[in-house]
Each structure stands twice: as C-alpha cells, then as structure tokens.
Amino acid sequence: MQPQTTETSVSVKVSKNEALTRRLKQFFKYKLAVIGLIVILVQIFLAIFANSVTSYSPTVQDLTHVNLKPGSPGHWLGTDNYGRDMWSRLVFGARLSLMVGFSSVIIGTVIGTLLGLLAGFYKFLDTIIMRISDLMFAFPGILLAMLIIAILGTSLLNVVIAISIWSIPSCARIVRGSVLSLKKQEYITAMRALGASHFRIIFQHILPNGTAPIIVFATMHMGTAILSTSALSFLGLGAEPSTPEWGAMISAGQQYMWQAPHLVIIPGIAIMLVVFAFNVVGDALRDMLDPNMKSR
C-alpha cells in the first residue's frame, strides 16, 4: 500500500490538464475500450434521440404486417409478431436498458457505498453490516431477485429494486476494503487526533480517495444489471410484455425463433454488444484508476 500513496500525492502536483491528457492517451491504448466507449455513446445517442431516429411507436401494433423480415420497405429491421417496428423497439429498448442499468447501479452503489463507509469506519457497525451482507451473499443472485419480485410484484421498477439490493453487498465490501486501508494512513490519523468531525473525515477525505474502485464497480455492474434484467424477463418476472425491453423481446421472440429468427437475433446481439461495451470500459477504467492493478 505505501508506495501507491506517494504516487497519488505526486500526481496531485502535476497540472490537471496534463494528467487528463495522459489518462486519455492511456485509455486509447486499450483498443477494445475505445470500441466499447463508442458503443456506449451510440446507445446514449439513440436513447436521447429515440423519437427522432424512429418513425413508428415501439408499442403500436399492425396485425396486418406481422413478422416482416429485416429489409422490408418501411421497416428496415422488420416487424415482430404483432407488427411492431423492430427498429423502434430496439431504439426504445436502448433507452430502457440504460435507464434500468443506471438507476439500479446508482441506487445499489449509493447505498452500498454508505454502508461500506460506515462498516469500514466504525468497528461496531462493521460486524453487523458485514454479517448481513454475508447473509445476502449466500443467496444466489437470481433467487434473491425472484424472492424480492415475489413480494413486490412483477414490474420493471421492481426489477430495478431487486437488482439494486442484490448489488449492495458487493459494493459495500469493496468500499469497506478501501476505507480500512485509507483509515490507517497518517493524514487521516492526524485529522482524527486534531478532532475533525467524523462526517468530514468520511466524506471529504476518505470518500474522494476511494472513488476509483467505486467507479470501476459501477461500470462493470451496468453490464450485470442489464444481463440480469433480461434473465428476469426471460423468467416472466420483468417488464410488461409490450414494453420494448430487450430481454423480454428475446423471451417473447423465442416462440417465433423458427419463423422469424430476427426477433431473437436482434435484441440478443444488442444485449451482448452493450454488456460487452460496459465490461471492456470497466476493465480499462480499472487498469487506469485502480493503483493496485496498474502493473497488470
């Protein structure tokens, strides 16, 4: 741990601009990460301008034009078994998966970080919080989500809640780990000796220095959240069927896989691309931000 602290304190002296360009250069060294970043940017673009890039509503049916193949006039990605435009559904699905991913990651990370900070800083809370997180770890993720949805009912919002809860313990562990090591450092011990308030120490000194692993966790978790949403939709526990959620689209499309394979291929590839993108970007971020990983 020691050498890394000196490294961070040195880099503080370097002008911010220079540090940024250095990091950017480092980032572009990871070719995959650049591809991933482009995919994410495209997704964000589609999510924001969903209304402008599509000419149909994603939910309006046209029962006279069902299962059109990709390349059909007016529907370049074809239509589904209710005659809904696949391109519109794909684009609005991009918006949904970003929303689901972001909101569950934000909820999970905020709560997880708070618990992690408390557990790491206060010894008496540590045991309680960590035992509870052990308890949650012992449940397989999907099973935990299924139980939560059984209580709350099936809806996309409840999927978000279930996935957030499921991510809390891992996040709390990571944060706790970095708090434990930061706590021992001289300047923190010094501040405590000087009588600085705990609140100030935690939020002004420990948290900012421990953000790197949180950001990495959050990015990687975006992928997991999107995948889990689709898995829950596959089990019929996710979005209501007319919403263009990618997992629900695959699950519904599977019934027509033999007549209209595009119903399954298109959302499947979309999920893979996006999850892949978040994973490679997360990987690259970890290499850059997490000093422990630098040598790898």
């Binding site: 939910t59 309006v60 049916q61 029962l63 209710y82 059984a150 009912g153 099936t154 809806s155 019929g236 526990l237 209501e240 069927p241 007319s242």
Partner: peptide
C-alpha cells in the same frame, strides 16, 4: 393483453397493463 391494450388505446382509452405471476 397486448392486443387488447393496443386496440383500446386506438379508440381513445389509456390502458395500464399489470402483469403478475
């Protein structure tokens, strides 16, 4: 549910679909 939701919306109703186990 999906077909009826769409058709009712076409005649001017709003339909909130609740799916459950």
């Amino acid at each position: 549910g999906q077909i009826v939701q769409d058709q009712l919306q076409k005649v001017g109703l709003k339909v909130k679909m609740d799916t459950m186990e």
